[in-house]
Design a protein around this nucleic acid. Sequence first.
DNA 1: GCAAAAGTGTTTCTACTACACCCATGG
DNA 2: CCATGGGTGTAGTAGAAACACTTTTGC
Lengths: 235, 235
Amino acid sequence: MSNENIYNPHVSIDCVVFGFNGEKLKVLLIERTIKENNGLYNDKKLPGSIIFADEDLDTAASRVLNELTGLKNIYLSQFHSFGNPKRTENPRDILWLENTTQLKIGRIVTVGYVALIKIDRKIQFKNENTTANWFDLNEVLKMNLAFDHSEIIHKGLEYIRHNMDIEPHLLFELLPRKFTISQLRILYDTVHQSRSDVRNFQKKVAQWPYVVPLDEMETGVSHRAARLYKYRKTK
Amino acid sequence: MSNENIYNPHVSIDCVVFGFNGEKLKVLLIERTIKENNGLYNDKKLPGSIIFADEDLDTAASRVLNELTGLKNIYLSQFHSFGNPKRTENPRDILWLENTTQLKIGRIVTVGYVALIKIDRKIQFKNENTTANWFDLNEVLKMNLAFDHSEIIHKGLEYIRHNMDIEPHLLFELLPRKFTISQLRILYDTVHQSRSDVRNFQKKVAQWPYVVPLDEMETGVSHRAARLYKYRKTK
DNA sequence: GCAAAAGTGTTTCTACTACACCCATGG
DNA sequence: CCATGGGTGTAGTAGAAACACTTTTGC
């Protein structure tokens, strides 16, 4: 028996959604407005949700992303859980939770997921009263976010850096379907906090069998056009 | 206000405790006996506990290990959370939980931790009605354990393999305080599923500044005695 | 003296680094 | 014709892999 509409108010998931605009890493955040005695308070939070009573964690994370963006088949990976009892202790956060869920909320343990999205996929907000936007990762790391979401983003970033190091395939989740080597290199260097040599990087990529050249060039640039490449899965 | 004796029956932690006997990886499991209509049923489970209402996840994991072994300062690392609603669906598991906790249990999300213990540390079982034993990892992987504990061990193993790959310091959590290069190599190869060349391994270790030779040799072996080494932390 | 594991060097191969110039295109 | 980024090769270095024999000890 499935109780799809009954929430479990003890466990939530939060998604750190990364994008790449060709230059910098971006994070998707939700605008939050709280009515307080003396007016409105605005800040930002990660996309997330408490889980349904009968819902798996991975499913909850997919659901949140689908509700937010309309997209399916997004790369998603669980990376860490956060259970400090103080994480839901800020009165502003408690108020917001109880208003949003209409439930009496105690302590919540949250499970962190990282998602990777091609930023050029057109995102359709299904939910009218949610505003989400991409922010520069570097800006976000300085912001004061809801709950412990700053900490979650830090850990998520660490996780994804580490993982892309050993699994280069993940880079292509962030690049457009057709990309130039230079875009790939800038992303690679952003993630690895490195500055690769252009020639050495070309050589490296040349031996990645899953990066295949197309018979197509970049257009609309005021300099020599770069060749486009695509990613092809190899098992 | 701290409610140290109130359980939160929605979230638990489970510890995959690894040891190394000089030859094989071992896992610490708890014997479990369940009274059923037609007699007693015996199986094994991971050390774990539901968390206290006001307790951090890491703290709960330390508590469980301390209650079980009497040891403090054990290497502990969170690796994955398991929330499939079906994981607490087996009537045998539900019965055991409700008998053990005296609480009405619904669904439980569990947070998996890996712990590394020097197997020669003498373990003091504080709790009289708990029996814990070391089992060969390979045997354990074939056993039918309580809940989803087999899956948890698989993931924990994967995690620790991966982590020791990039952080060789962790190897020394499993070795005795004084060890031979050959013990180190066997552990290394067990973890990495490799077969290192003896000479190349000696060279590799020689450039690890944190492995320092002692003026002491192995005793009681019926062949040439090997030099003993110790691990020294480097920041 | 034999069984069993300890300990020791050299060569090869591979992967990564450093480094500078000509090319194509748009304006 | 100039500004902008695209694209290419070679030489050096450092780390990993392959490979066999002598040493020490207990029995």
